[in-house]
Design a protein around this nucleic acid. Structure first.
Lengths: 202, 202
DNA sequence: ATTTGAACAAATGAGTCAAAAGTTCAAAAG
DNA sequence: CTTTTGAACTTTTGACTCATTTGTTCAAAT
């Protein structure tokens, strides 16, 4: 029975994932407003009322769709960072791979461009706070390792994590504005080296 | 005649300044939409049509009002920075005084909170680009001095100026969101020290 | 050079309405 | 017991009208 229960849950979770993939394409192509539940149901070959078996409402569907992508993004970078030995190199990889990921996932990138509210500098209007707290955890780990290894200055971990995450979001906002992508990547590079110099103890 | 011309221009400029001061109070109190040209004219003791002798239209009045404040802000900080000898202290003063200024000018602060578009990370939707380019000039000067004195690493001045200005705007956006003011000021302090360490050559 | 009043133009808010989209749920299907 | 459906219900949207307010212009007066 536990077996059956689990397999059923898996089926539901799998179909939800299918829905989220379809929704991702739709939202990227038409935007939130122009995409209807019926559109997505049709593409899935089901009726729109059935969508409500998987999500609570349209907004929930959208947030599950975007949130799903953000989680994969975060976890991918987290895994890649873990595999790097040297702490300075780890920091560089964390930054560069995070930006590369966004550029190579066009649907997510399009959604982000059309919905600037996804990245916000104000914590209390962050619709993906929980996910972002996890992303901050990646930064925090790197700082902690650097400090405990004696490679970094003994900075205040919490404040510095907030600071670096805010700078990261600032760059994401800048890259989300279609124009000026070239100048931003130069700024990211310069910023990474400047901050690494500021972090590293002599 | 040159004398007369000049005094007349001064009168006009002076009255424009009066209008901008009245408009500042009004816009801070009621916001852009709820403030009418008639409100301001009445407060000035003139008719609304006369306002158009000083400004082109309502939007122009608003931008002159805000722009005027931004220019005073920028110039005040610029003057204060000039008077500091030591380059590191100069950098610290530039940052701390810029934030203190905003907090001590409540009308400007209120307007900024109600119109988040005043501070934008996207250059091509910056309504005050010209003024902000001047503000960046203050940063650029400090960087140039630091580098030419050999106190700072020979960083790329243009890219680093862009970077620091973006971080500055990021902080302004965060402080414009009523909440979390305390945590932001700690981040500004931490950020200033981190960046100074990254800038300073050993 | 400044100011005004009167006239004109544009924007706004309230109200109506039908169509479209979102949502619920009892019953059917598997 | 899980999943799906069709039909009914509710909410939102967009198009339209209309009176009022607000923004803007300009010739004439100060």
């Amino acid at each position: 029975m536990s077996q059956k229960f689990k397999s059923l849950k898996n089926d539901k979770e799998t179909k939800l994932q299918d829905i989220l993939q379809v929704a991702l394409k739709m939202f990227a192509r038409y935007g939130y407003k122009k995409t209807t539940i019926e559109d997505i149901a049709q593409e899935m070959g089901m009726t729109k009322s059935n969508i409500y078996f998987y999500v609570a409402n349209k907004k929930d569907l959208y947030e599950k769709t975007v949130g799903n992508e953000l989680i994969q993004w975060r976890d991918t970078i987290g895994r890649e960072v873990e595999q790097v030995e040297d702490i300075v190199e780890k920091f560089r990889i964390m930054v560069s791979r995070a930006f590369e990921y966004l550029f190579s996932h066009k649907d997510l990138h399009t959604i982000v461009v059309n919905d600037p509210g996804i990245f916000t500098l104000s914590r209390d209007q962050d619709r993906f706070l929980e996910i972002n707290l996890g992303a901050m955890q990646v930064i925090r780990m790197v700082l902690q390792q650097g400090v405990s290894q004696g490679r970094f200055y003994p900075v205040d971990i919490d404040v510095t994590t907030d600071l670096l995450f805010s700078i990261y979001i600032m760059f994401l906002i800048k890259t989300s504005v279609a124009s000026e992508i070239q100048s931003v990547s130069r700024m990211v590079e310069a910023g990474t080296e400047l901050i690494l110099r500021g972090l590293c103890a002599p």
